[in-house]
Design a protein around this nucleic acid. Structure first.
Lengths: 224, 224
DNA sequence: TTGCGGATCAAACGATCGTTTCATATGCAT
DNA sequence: ATGCATATGAAACGATCGTTTGATCCGCAA
């Protein structure tokens, strides 16, 4: 009912309107994050994008194909905006690399960049996995988890078995994911409520890095 | 299409058939966990329960009321089956109390008891909160988180500010929740896949308790 | 101008879902 | 036996959803 024209430039589109497809992707991202794959109707997506109901099927084939396209672009954008190496050189100190990893994971989860709905999209994909999660794990999560495994192995030392390294890496990741996976609980616990604000992200990152660093302290002269 | 009668006792029901309501609750629990609130249709629930389509509305009013009833009974059962104090006396050593807390949380999440779908139900409620989460947090999660806060405060000492205690408690909880909140990812990461088996729950509990215990080590003679 | 292909539109189709309706069965007090 | 409240059954209603259809608009090459 609003403006049928895209709110982009004032001038007319160059050859044909590329805007509709992009606006559908953005609107679908928001609505899939808000209401889920089933809950977000094609009509609502088209309306928010200022497009016709048939636009989704015309540009993406069907609703499920639009969904995986949203997941791919959203996840890829999050990967590019917050790289887990934090721009650090490969030979940077382990502590700094661990801190950078934690910071990147938290930034992705809590939407420090533009679209704040990407974290919720990921949480929904965990609770209700679709075909999109396979490529997300294979192309994004798995290689980055390998990088974290290397960091943890460097912290724990070469004598620690692989299973213990994997468990420790999981402990690091979990502390970052918690803050938006369990967001409805965080919002309802008075002790955790102050950390919901975006400004608290840095404090959480510092805590997670310190907490993990203390737990991963190399047992130098321990009983053994 | 199968047996219309409940497969309970061989004899006839005493006065009237109480079984239908209970079978609807059980079938709804499974299907809500498998497909979510929207995905599980009342027809599928009624069919699995061996009841008529109208039975849901007759016994529970409508679908959403059946859902909150499922959540309440399922969550209450999990609370009762795995108490976070682990049956320990209140004056037990902090380390044992922390271990018991972690073990209980993991047992609930990974369905060590009977119904393995309760964890998935909780994960879905996190990704897509309904009216049920308010009572779950108020009656179950909040008081138990307070108990964890007391444990952590005892470990960190009285000089640590409340925000640091809250962050540390969140770190403990997150390590337990991770293993079923992020289950689709765990299942796809080769390094974590072996921990999916139910037998690995005890190993995870030991790791989480040790990891947290090391991170929460009281800074005896640290810089201060 | 004409013709054409891509893009958008209103309208409708078929399927599914939650819910309702009304009939019927059952157990129990009278 | 009779009346009544509870419970179950088959069938349908109204609403919504994903998708399809056919017409229309528009920029551009011939």
């Amino acid at each position: 009912m609003r403006s049928k024209r895209p709110p982009s430039a004032v001038s007319a589109p160059p050859t044909h309107d590329e805007g509709t497809r992009a606006r559908l992707l953005a609107a679908a991202g928001e609505l899939f994050a808000e209401r889920g794959l089933r809950g977000a109707t094609v009509r609502a997506i088209a309306e928010r994008a200022g497009a016709n109901v048939a636009a989704v099927n015309y540009h993406f084939g069907d609703k499920s194909r639009l969904y995986v396209e949203v997941m791919r672009s959203s996840f890829g954008e999050a990967l590019a905006r917050h790289p887990t190496d934090g721009g650090l050189p490969a030979d940077a100190p382990v502590d700094e690399r661990l801190r950078a990893f934690v910071r990147a994971l938290l930034a992705r989860a809590r939407g420090v960049g533009r679209p704040a709905w990407q974290g919720r999209l990921m949480a929904r994909e965990m609770a209700d996995p679709s075909a999109a999660i396979d490529v997300m794990v294979r192309e994004g999560i798995a290689p980055e988890f390998e990088r974290l495994l290397a960091i943890v192995r460097e912290l724990l030392g070469p004598r620690v078995p692989a299973e213990a390294v994997a468990l420790a890496a999981a402990s690091v990741v979990s502390q970052c994911l918690f803050w938006f996976f369990a967001e409805p609980v965080v919002a309802r616990l008075p002790a955790l409520k102050p950390f919901r604000e975006a400004a608290a992200t840095e404090a959480i990152a510092r805590h997670v890095a310190e907490f993990s660093r203390a737990a991963l302290a190399r047992p130098k002269g321990r009983r053994r």
